[in-house]
Amino acid sequence: MQTEIYLIRHTTPDIAKGICYGQTDLDVVQSFPEEVELTRPHLPANIRTVYSSPLQRCSKLASALFPAHEIQFNDALKELDCGTWEMQAWDEISKAEMDPWLKDFVNVTVPGGESYTIMHERVLRCFSEIMQQPSPAVIVAHGGVLRSILAHVTSTPLKESFDVFSLHYGCVVKISGEPGNLSHELLYNYSAAGKEWHRPTVNSSQA
């Protein structure tokens, strides 16, 4: 069965740089309408099904792009659960907690949260189900979720996925082909704000 799925990352969240967040339900910034219009031209008109993380930075984008669709929200498409680190400044998280995760963020679980592997497994279960549904389809989700899917499609090790897939807010990636033989194409990926930084600055975490 031929598949055509468009991955869309949410637009810019309303959060200061340097703050750890995952499943915190952040709102979007005031430039949201303009960001929506930058993403819109890169999507086809014949989308049949729309799936989204229920967090509002995704749900608002899905609703704005596809007002005529019944959006299917799925908790499995949420970002990594950052547990007790949610909404803490990266540089204020204790070194004792942070160092093991920095050394192996794929397998080490965030205190009270998830590891990248745990998130990857739930995302792939959801993605496999979506693959069986009518397409063209859309998935509106988070950077970690999209990278997890792309790592699976391209057989990229999870530990390399953040370096291999630089995905800016509002980006669009097309996945197409048959199960076991999928390809991806980056249709839109622009950031006026530059590179994000979702980890402590060097040598700054507290003992």
Rank of each mutant, 00 (worst) to 15 (best):
D163N: 12
K103Y: 01
P54T: 02
L102R: 09
S52Y: 02
L65D: 04
Y188K: 04
T12V: 10
E4P: 08
P136Y: 07
A64W: 03
Q56S: 06
R125A: 14
P100G: 12
I118N: 08
T12G: 05
L65V: 05
S148E: 10
L61T: 04
L7K: 08
G113A: 00
Y116P: 02
E114F: 03
Y188D: 10
Q72T: 12
C82Y: 08
S115V: 09
N107P: 07
V172Q: 01
T3P: 00
Y6L: 08
P33Y: 03
D91P: 04
A96R: 10
E79P: 10
S205F: 08
F105H: 12
V172W: 00
A76Q: 13
H168I: 00
A137W: 01
A137I: 06
T39K: 04
P100K: 07
I19K: 01
G180W: 05
A62P: 08
A89H: 13
M87E: 13
Y190H: 13
P33K: 07
V106T: 15
N203E: 14
V110N: 03
S94A: 15
Y188S: 06
E35A: 04
D27C: 01
E178R: 11
G177E: 07
W90M: 02
S63E: 14
L182T: 12
I71V: 13
A62L: 05
T39L: 02
Q56N: 06
S52T: 10
K159P: 05
I118K: 13
K159L: 12
A68P: 00
E160R: 11
D99G: 03
L77C: 07
A45D: 13
T117F: 01
A76Y: 09
L182K: 11
I15R: 05
A64N: 03
Y169G: 03
A62V: 03
V173Y: 06
A192D: 11
F73Q: 10
M98K: 05
C20I: 02
G83C: 06
E114G: 06
M1H: 11
L124Y: 08
V138T: 11
T117I: 08
K95S: 15
E34V: 07
G177L: 06
S115C: 09
H142Y: 03
I15Y: 04
S115P: 11
H10S: 06
R48S: 13
K159Y: 12
N189P: 06
S59G: 07
E37D: 14
S63N: 14
V106W: 01
R48V: 12
S115M: 09
D25F: 01
I175Y: 04
W197G: 10
G83I: 01
K159F: 11
V145W: 07
P136K: 04
V172T: 11
L146M: 13
K60G: 04
P44D: 11
Y51I: 03
T24S: 15
E70Y: 04
E129D: 15
L186C: 15
G18H: 07
V202I: 09
S59D: 02
Y190P: 00
W101R: 06
E70P: 02
S53H: 09
P111V: 09
V50W: 05
E129H: 12
R40I: 03
I15H: 01
S135Q: 15
